[in-house]
Each structure stands twice: as structure tokens, then as C-alpha cells.
Design a protein around this nucleic acid. Sequence first.
RNA 1: GGCUCUAUCGUCUAAUGGUUAGGACGAAAGCUUCUCAAGCUUUAAAUCCGGGUUCGAUUCCCGGUAGAGUCACCA
Length: 452
Amino acid sequence: MGTSNKVRVRFPPSPTGFCHVGTARMAIINFLFAKKNNGAVIFRSEDTDKERSTAEFETDIIDSLHWLGLEWDEFYRQSERTDIYRQSLASLIASDKAYVSEEESKKEPGTKARVVRLRNPGTKVTFSDLIRGDITFDTAELGDFVVARSETDPLYHFAVVVDDAQLNITHVIRGDDHISNTPRQILIQEALGFERPLYAHYPLLLGTDKSKLSKRTGDTAIRDYRENGYLADAFLNYIAILGWTPKSQRELISLEEMIDEFDIGDLHKSGAVFDIEKLRWFNRQYLLKIPHQEFAVSALGIMEEAFSKRGLKWNSDIAAKLVDMLWERISVWSDLRQLIDEGELDYFFSDPTYDKGLIPGKKGNAESAAVHLGALQKLIADVPESEFSKTDTIKQTVWAYAEKEGTGAVLWPFRYSLTGKERSPDPFFVASVIGKQSVARRVSTAISALTV
RNA sequence: GGCUCUAUCGUCUAAUGGUUAGGACGAAAGCUUCUCAAGCUUUAAAUCCGGGUUCGAUUCCCGGUAGAGUCACCA
């Protein structure tokens, strides 16, 4: 196989907005196909719309794709290739395959414009789609469509066709919103005498309302997921698996394994709803895989930042003891920030306030709660300070009494007096984290709250 | 509306001309030292409808229906 047969695919984003989920998916599918076939990836910034394209968006797209671990071999900008398009346009006009038409401008009504229209032979065009099979269009209804705003200003379809040919693109793999663009592009291709690449149109990602995923139907910007603390590997994995089943039928699969198992024919034909809950589950699986030390460093950093933002006092010794407990309670880093912002971790760092009515819990009353807390106070006083960091020791100290008096009636008041929360980790863990002094103080505060 | 594409649990999906139609997320229930979380176990939940071919169709064919995409001097 000669180099001319080498597989070449493209990432052709239009920098008119932040990198969105659909762009990422386009890139992933093309990337997997290219890598599987030892091919090349061509990044082409489609910035022919001068009004909407910006360098900021282009940078965001590049950064986002890099973040996902995707790379490319060549990079082009359509805005820097206008000479090439002009030449093709001129030759098309010279050969009378297209013509200049003077008519009223649609962009600026009232003024005249010299647009370029293709002489449409009006034939039926059939192309073979790698995912869907043969698709036929009657191009007569397209008429002599416009391919350039002027003799020097080509439109999207024209630039795409010229680029795909000039850059030797072998496979055009894109969303099925482009199916109806394909016959139009083939007409231009044929007028220019270019070879036809192979096409593959995969289905679009859908919002929960089953329509094309858009800002309306949920977060679509990759940067938002990144900022919320989704892991790149998890995100990549989930997006890749949506609409494609690897040969092994595994859901959790690495990039290398995906490349190995990729077959464009395995791409599904129907659209898939982007499910944030399942993404969260994927993210949790990947979060669980990261090394303990790495998780701890990240968690501590996020906690300190979130606490300082709220102007609360920070204690890194206490925070360090919280890491493992937190690990089993979050799916995404933003969950941790949310926990802190909602005050769910405050009691580890400072004494809580109580709702008197909640102290006894459902299994007891104010009187019994006061009695039990008093008993616990004595039991705990006997535990040496040096033993207090052990959850098991605290549990053993209290357990016999709790079992005798009823675990619910004893443990709820105990836990509530330490946390001031109806929901929290168990009291033994909390006690071991906050230390003997704090436990004694909080229990006695709770007792006085009950007896006032 | 024209054109094009699509159709299995709520969602992502597997499978087959003959199966108890399988798995995952989510949900529900139970267990797990009080609550919560995690974990484990269990349960509910699907072949769009109508014809045809066939001994037999969810699978093949046709027709409906529904949904989506697209119909620019945007990309």
C-alpha cells in the first residue's frame, strides 16, 4: 500500500463557540478510526465565517481536545487558505461549471451582489455510507446553489470540498446532520473533477428531550465538565461508548483498548441520549482508580479552597482524616465543593448548633436522650486520649451500653450531638476525627440544650 | 411541508428465524452495628403498530406511525 492510500481523516470544528460535547465526539470517533488504521488526523479550523469565528474559541477547542488526550498530525486554518479556494473557484467559472450571478444581496437587501452559482446538472446522486449503506438524493431540487459570496469569498461547502481534496482526506466521518449536505458537496467535487472520499455519518448525540444535544438541553461545553472536575479519561470513555459498542462489549475501556477494538461498522445507526447520571457513574469508576496519594492531594486542595472561600477556619490535620470517607461519597470533584458549600462538613471543624427537638431521634425522647448522653459522657471520659483516634476503640467503649439500651435510642443522640445533622457518617468516625475534647464538649452542650 | 435518516426496559445497549429477550446506568426492596454514603443481594422494567414470507418473526419484506436531521449569500 503506497502512501497515497494512507488513511487521512479530519477534525473540522468551526470556532464559533466553545468546544462542545458534539465536537469532542466527532474528534474521538475520527481519532479512533485514524489510529486503528495507522492514519493521520488533520485539524482544520473552519473559520470562513469571519463574523462569528474567534481565536478564543479556537484555543478553547484545541485545549479541550488536548485535555481529552486527542492529538493531530497537521493543522490548517481555512482563513489562511483563501488563495487555494479562489483558484479553484476561478477554474470552475472558466470551465463554465459555475457562473457569476448579479442579484440582490440577501445579507444587505437593496444592494447588488455578485454571487457564484454552480451549474447543477440536476442528477440523482448516490453515495455509499460506511454506517448506513447507500443513500440517494435527487439534486434537481437544489437548483443552481450558491457556492461563493463573491468571486473571492467562498462559502463553507466549497471550502470543505477543496480542502478535503487538497489535503487528501480519505474518510469523511461526521454527524448525520451532514447527510443532506453530502450531495451538494459531491456536486461541487464532480464539477472540480475531484475524487470522492468515503463517507460515514454517525448519529447525533441527543438531549433528554431526544432532540439534538444543545445548550438548551444541558451543559454542552467541555470546559464546564472540566471545571466541574470530571476526569478526562472518564469523559472520553463515556462519550466513546455512547453510540458504539466495542467488540469486547466492555463499557469501562481505555483509549488503547478502544483503538484496538474500533471498527467503524460497529457505530450504531440511531441517536443516543447523553445521560449525565451515567457519566457521573463513569467518573466515579475512574475516581476510584486514581492512586490514594494523588486523590488526597487533590481533595485537600479543593477542600482548603472551598473552606477559605466561605471564610471558615481550616484545619489540615482534620481534613486529612476525612479523605477516605469523602472518597466513597463523591462521583465528581464538584460534589466535594458542593458538600462544603452546603455546610455538610462544617461539624468536623467547628461545634454545631442543635435543633433541640431532633436530639432524641425517633427511638427516644428528651428524657431518655439526656440519660443516655450522660452515660456516654462517663464512658468516654475513661478512654485515654491516645486511644481516641481509633474508631474501633470508641465503638467498643460505647457498644455494650448502646445494645443494652437500644442502639437507636443511644446512637442517634450521640451522633446528632456531635454533628447537629440528621444525616452524617457514623458517630464513632466523627468522634475519632474531632478528638476527645470536642466530643466531651459537644455532648455536654447537647445535654444542657435538652434540659433547659 | 419536501427530502433524508432512525425505531429492543425510563436511559445506554446485547442477542437470535425457535431464548425464561441478556448486561449497564437509574429506580425500588432487603441486608450490612442509629441516620446518610458506600458495598452486597433481590425485584420491577423493552422488541412502535399492521400486514406478508415462514412450521415459527423481535429478527427478513412491505405499509403505516412516531421521532430526529436538513432544507442560507451560517458552518
